[in-house]
Design a protein around this nucleic acid. Structure first.
Lengths: 122, 122
DNA sequence: ACAATACATACCTATATGGGAATATGTCAA
DNA sequence: TTGACATATTCCCATATAGGTATGTATTGT
């Protein structure tokens, strides 16, 4: 089996750096394709194709205005990504807490704290 | 140019669903490969290969113990992902705020609020 | 030394990619 | 209608996958 299609979900779509750039560039501000091309210095067909992928997974919304098409990021579609990553938040918070506790201990008792006491607390 | 390597960064590594499963399954708990294979019902070589990718981008850490190798998720490496997605948080908060404001307005003035007033505020 | 165990890697194949160039489609203006 | 403009799509190609099967490599126990 080959790699999953880029259009299979937001995770795959967002794996491509240029697509992330596009999403960031368009905040939720509507912009025509040409503006993206100019701002991000990419080829026009390339941008069109990236936008196609993003649209397929709902990461951008599109609206026609005369001969141009206006795109904007649909932030809501990025949320699952944020939430998935967020499930690991508690782990790096442990890290932070350790650093914080250590700093506080130093403030209270001076810098001669036993490092072991803060390191392993299985 | 082809698609970027899965080992090029966390975004690409995490695009594959099975790799996300592995990361979630290992929280930061150390586990041998065989346990992953059994728990997630994947082929052993497949798991080994996924772990290789994850290791290459720092998403998991590995330690040898006799003939087995213990893996655990390195949550810190997921953080950039969480942060990138988080830059869009303000957009979906706007959504929430609108809903919330509307609800509060109804509580204050009854349900005859002018919907326009809450909808467009360019 | 040998067999068994726990992983890793090599090999194969179908499939999809992203970029560039060329071309198609659609819309406006004179 | 014709041409100019804004996008989308097609074609071409080098590259990389993910899964399965088979095999390689350490490490342990007897």
């Amino acid at each position: 089996m080959a790699r999953a299609s880029t259009t299979s979900d937001a995770f795959n779509a967002v794996a491509e750096p240029r697509r992330r750039e596009i999403l960031s560039y368009l905040g939720e501000t509507e912009r025509p394709v040409g503006e993206i091309v100019a701002a991000l210095r990419m080829g026009q067909p390339s941008v069109s194709k990236h936008l196609r992928v993003l649209r397929d997974v709902g990461l951008v919304r599109m609206r026609c205005q005369g001969r141009q098409k206006l795109y904007r990021t649909n932030a809501e579609a990025i949320r699952p990504l944020h939430e998935w990553a967020g499930t690991f938040e508690r782990y790096w918070q442990h890290q932070l807490n350790r650093v914080k506790e250590r700093a506080e201990a130093i403030v209270r008792h001076g810098s001669d704290v036993n490092p072991q006491e803060l390191k392993e607390k299985k």
